[in-house]
């Protein structure tokens, strides 16, 4: 391969690997926010007010149809205008968390919709409270069909973390950019970043598929 420099590779690899830890951390934190906020967004769509539901839906649509990179810029640069200065990490976690919450809320919604109407009626006939109905009856049944989508977005959020480099979150892409700027060598850092991403996302995707299959078998769905 064209002047691939192995010595250089070994020099930058530790730096890239330590940045990978930040990438994984960013993906994990962002996903944690998205999982919880997504559920809130899904449940907010089930209120009795059609106007409220429609507004929540439109906000979700807005988040889903605008670029993450622009949302990251918006959060990072607009907050100071209102007197709140966010660190790159906080701004990054917030924007990626909200972005994926919008996607996950759709996954949950599909899951909740897949619970048969009879289950709600049975819960009502047992005089369960709404909260109990959700947490004891509906969500446990809505979860398995949501798992595939949730897994896909976990891999998705991981692959979107490089976007956080634009506001200086010191993740993998940011490290590769810095190396490129310092050494004027791009072949090794960018190729290594690609390989590291593949090395993580392919096994993760396979693991998620395996987990899904295991879950389905465990619940007697297949």
């Amino acid at each position: 391969m064209l002047n691939w420099d192995w010595d250089f590779t070994w020099t930058i690899l530790p730096r890239l690997l330590s940045a990978t830890v930040n990438t994984i951390l960013a993906a994990g934190l962002g996903y944690a926010i998205a999982v919880v906020l997504g559920l809130v967004l899904a449940l907010l769509q089930r209120t009795r007010s059609p106007i409220f539901t429609a507004s929540v839906r439109e906000i979700i649509e807005f988040v889903r149809s605008t670029p993450l990179v622009l949302q990251v810029f918006f959060v990072f640069y607009v907050a100071p205008q209102f007197g709140i200065t966010l660190s790159p990490w906080v701004a990054g976690m917030l924007s990626i968390g909200v972005h994926y919450a919008a996607y996950l809320s759709e996954v949950y919604r599909g899951g909740i919709d897949s619970v048969p109407k009879g289950q709600w009626e049975a819960a009502t006939s047992l005089n369960l409270s709404t909260t109990r109905t959700y947490f004891r009856i509906v969500i446990p049944q809505a979860l398995p069909p949501s798992l595939a989508g949730m897994g896909n977005y976990l891999v998705g959020i991981f692959k979107d973390t490089p976007i956080l480099s634009v506001i200086g979150v010191a993740e993998l892409m940011h490290a590769a950019n810095s190396i490129g700027a310092e050494t004027y060598r791009f072949l090794e850092p960018y190729t290594l970043v690609g390989i590291i991403f593949l090395a993580i996302s392919l096994p993760t995707a396979a693991l998620i598929r395996a987990f899904e299959g295991w879950m389905r078998r465990k619940l007697g769905l297949t």
């Binding site: 973390t161 976007i163 960018y190 190729t191 593949l198």
Partner: peptide, 10 residues
Amino acid sequence: GTSLLVQLYW
């Protein structure tokens, strides 16, 4: 399996 940004830069 990799990010669009990585692909774009590459």
